[in-house]
Nucleic acid binder design. Structure first.
Lengths: 341, 341
DNA sequence: GACATCTCGGAAAACCCTTTCCGTGGCGAG
DNA sequence: CTCGCCACGGAAAGGGTTTTCCGAGATGTC
């Protein structure tokens, strides 16, 4: 609590251990050739003094801060939590800390944070977003540190972007519903301006086609990412084509809406109609009636992947282009497919 | 993108401006007495070179890193997002960056992060949680930096904790429902081990009592924070006391469950029964039928408050104890109270 | 003309480390 | 005995800033 007393420095540790500063440094960092006895004396001294090396000074001389910036561009989003967790998993082991900055979808603010990160000499930057659509790169000049875009895609092909494999996610949904014997499919999803919307549909359709099942445009409804739209679109779909027995939704919110409309129209899920969502948003999927089967983008895994790639860039390797991370299916009740593996 | 070229230092700026290093420093930081012409020459040089001061070096000499740690103890939670936003609002202006660490409810991990933050010489630490119950302080020894607990409460009364005013939040709900003419109240909420559960109930009851309305224990249901429990508890409540015309829920998930059960039992909300939730969890509240009126803890405001207090502690002021931040009511349709102001 | 007072800008110490380079003493080999 | 090598540990040079202190010249006052 109380501030004031200066932190203990390596000088004091060295003095107490009766060695020079450089020897203390070597002992503490397990460098150089030291007698065991010396090393231990230094450690003991450090311990007794409660020595905490000053990372600032260390960074200065090593020219490596062991920090990275996490710059979330779009306004704070729940997607960032698992992403950050994954990042920490992969970085924490290497003792890298992360600066979190929320750009709030404001380019000005983004620039401000970028400068701040640069001036703090981060070793790298991860840019996250909530869209897989290409966005302008962080800066129009080459940056002095490596950058990776995670759940966000740079328009510059020289940049590295890691993204969920939406197309494969769409396939997953189709395969699950097909396996349950569904024949008449529908898709309720978000605005077509989202690359994710188009990719998920592409994968979904492709898997259906391979099974000889068609998904005409009339049974694809695009609208806002809102529960209300899920309900309304499903109602329209049922009115136009009552024999629909499978609905794939572009996210879990829409799926919740679909589920409600289906139940209220007298359909049983999953007996009469199978439903699969996207995002696997915990509380939402679990609280649904019945619990919602949903495609999980494994954002944590995505974060880990991004971190590993960033580390690799920091090592000096060159990587660029798009990297896709596979989705997996979280099977609950609504799909009616085979039980959980 | 490309790494390698050394960052430009103040030495180069000084050389280019034809002044000494110290003069350059003074110019850049608007310190000391310099002719305007000199100052401008330095700025121009800095600009042309794209100079970014090295925050590491600056921190070292100033003994102030202008960074703070945000240590979230419980596993990553959506509560942390608005909290972080508020923190950034209040800190960003002072150009303070934040290190984000997720303790994952693991004391070991928490200690690890604490050490890491300390070694990075953060100026202060904000500890966040998802419970308002007292928790053991971050360390059992006095820390060299100030700490504030936000949406988290240290068991040490010498520490400073900022918390939402759950009691007042409960009153808000009661007043809103009373204003709509409700008479027979019920409460569906989380486990009684949560201080938040008890506080919200206390406030709710107090406000009812002031209006001469009683809330017998039989109409208070405590259970897990899950939608399913919201549905089940509401059903029980209705069976035991069909004339219930107001339900206050301990969070929005429970409220969603309550809403569903009410609708399916033939009640109209808000005409027959008023419902108020807690948390004002955007998508959940907006997507509800009808849209859910909910108590908002203003976590962003809480974060700002925490940041301001932390800054004050960093300035050297002494503060301790509990600080409560008021909740506000987000009026939508489900309460049936007076329209939005 | 002497002296005090300003204004401007530089030299150097300090911040706390890491790392390179070197010196010393001990040992084995020839 | 000499040489070369190795193990160990110290001196000192950075790393990039800020800040204190001081000196030099210009100006003002009597």
């Amino acid at each position: 609590m109380s501030d004031g007393q200066r932190a203990v420095t390596i000088t004091e540790v060295a003095a107490r251990a009766g060695v020079s500063i450089s020897t203390a440094s070597k002992a503490l960092n397990r460098r150089g050739q030291l007698r065991n006895e010396t090393r231990e004396r230094v450690f003991a001294a450090a311990d007794e003094l409660g020595y905490q090396p000053n990372a600032l000074a260390r960074s200065l001389v090593q020219r490596r801060s062991y920090t990275v910036g996490l710059l979330s561009t779009e306004s704070a989003d729940r997607f960032n939590i698992p992403l950050h967790l994954g990042l920490e998993n992969a970085l924490g082991a290497g003792r890298v800390s992360v600066f979190l900055c929320d750009g709030r979808a404001d380019p000005e603010r983004e620039r401000f944070y970028l400068e701040s990160l640069l001036s703090r000499r981060v070793d790298g930057i991860v840019v996250t977003g909530v869209r897989t659509d290409a966005r302008p790169p962080l800066a129009d000049v080459p940056l002095p540190v490596p950058v990776v875009y995670a759940y966000s895609r740079s328009a510059d092909p020289g940049d590295l972007s890691v993204l969920p494999d939406d197309e494969q996610g769409g396939r997953l949904a189709a395969e699950h519903l097909l396996a349950a014997g569904r024949r008449t499919f529908a898709h309720v999803t978000g605005p077509t301006e989202y690359a994710a919307v188009r990719d998920r549909l592409t994968g979904f359709r492709a898997a259906l086609a391979e099974a000889g099942v068609a998904l005409p445009d009339a049974r694809v409804r695009c609208g806002p990412w809102r529960e209300e739209f899920g309900r309304a679109a499903t109602a329209e779909l049922l009115a136009a084509r009552p024999e629909v027995d499978a609905v794939f939704c572009g996210n879990d919110l829409l799926a919740r809406g679909a589920l409600d409309t289906l139940r209220e129209s007298g359909r049983r899920v999953p007996e009469d109609v199978g439903v699969v969502g996207f995002d696997n948003w915990g509380v939402l999927a679990e609280g649904a009636r019945p619990p919602l089967t949903s495609v999980d983008m494994d954002l944590q895994g995505l974060g880990e992947l991004a971190a590993r790639r960033l580390l690799s860039l920091i090592e000096g390797n060159r990587e660029s282009g798009l990297v896709h991370h596979p989705c997996r299916l979280e099977v609950r009740a609504s799909g009616g497919g085979p039980a959980v593996r």
